[in-house]
Amino acid sequence: MSFKNLAERQILKAQAEGQLDNLEGEGKPLPARAPGSLDTAAGMRIMADAGAVPREIELKKEIDAQRLVVQKAEGTPDWKVAMAKLADLQLRHAIEQEARRKFFT
């Protein structure tokens, strides 16, 4: 028996037993697929559901917050310090992205 037939039989059995009724998201369209490979997207989703946030995502949030700091500091002596911190965060983010790409290839 092929995997396809086995999977189809399990789905039909679950439907007959009502195990697929009233599931979260039932009747709603599937969410838009994230750019990138499916395995990476699936891994990120599993981590998000478990409450684990990759360092790459944390850095992205820090970058967004730092951009606001840079905008507010424009024209003041603190602007250079804020820009240096933003550049550092962007570099770290790029390193994390590259490490993830290398890990998955």
Rank of each mutant, 00 (worst) to 15 (best):
K28Q: 15
K28A: 08
P29Q: 05
L30H: 11
L30G: 07
P31N: 12
P31E: 10
P31F: 04
P31K: 10
A32T: 10
A32S: 14
A32K: 08
A32C: 05
R33E: 13
R33Y: 02
A34W: 11
A34M: 03
A34T: 05
P35W: 02
G36W: 02
G36Q: 04
G36A: 03
G36T: 04
G36Y: 03
G36N: 09
G36H: 01
S37E: 11
S37N: 07
S37R: 14
S37D: 08
S37T: 06
S37F: 03
L38A: 13
L38P: 06
L38K: 12
D39I: 13
D39H: 11
T40F: 10
T40P: 07
T40Y: 06
T40M: 14
T40N: 09
T40V: 09
A41N: 07
A41C: 08
A41H: 08
A42E: 08
A42D: 05
A42F: 10
A42W: 08
G43W: 00
G43C: 02
G43Q: 00
G43D: 01
G43A: 07
M44A: 10
M44N: 12
M44Y: 14
R45I: 03
I46A: 10
I46L: 08
M47G: 14
M47K: 14
M47L: 14
M47E: 09
A48N: 12
A48K: 11
A48T: 14
D49P: 03
A50I: 06
A50Y: 09
A50T: 15
G51M: 01
G51F: 01
A52N: 10
A52G: 04
A52M: 10
V53K: 05
V53E: 04
V53T: 12
V53H: 02
V53I: 07
V53L: 04
P54L: 01
P54V: 02
P54D: 02
P54E: 01
R55M: 06
R55H: 05
R55P: 04
R55G: 02
E56N: 04
E56T: 05
I57V: 11
I57D: 00
I57N: 00
I57M: 01
I57C: 00
E58G: 06
E58N: 07
E58S: 07
E58M: 13
E58T: 12
E58D: 15
L59Q: 11
L59G: 02
K60W: 02
K60I: 08
K61I: 04
K61L: 15
K61D: 15
K61S: 08
E62G: 15
E62W: 04
E62K: 04
I63G: 00
D64A: 06
D64E: 07
D64R: 12
D64M: 11
A65F: 12
A65R: 12
A65P: 06
A65E: 07
Q66D: 06
Q66A: 06
Q66S: 14
Q66K: 12
Q66C: 12
R67I: 04
R67C: 14
L68H: 10
L68G: 09
L68M: 09
V69S: 03
V69C: 07
V69Q: 02
V69N: 01
V69E: 11
V70I: 05
V70L: 03
V70W: 00
Q71R: 06
Q71I: 10
K72M: 13
K72D: 15
A73P: 13
A73I: 08
E74P: 04
E74N: 15
E74R: 10
G75T: 14
G75N: 13
G75P: 10
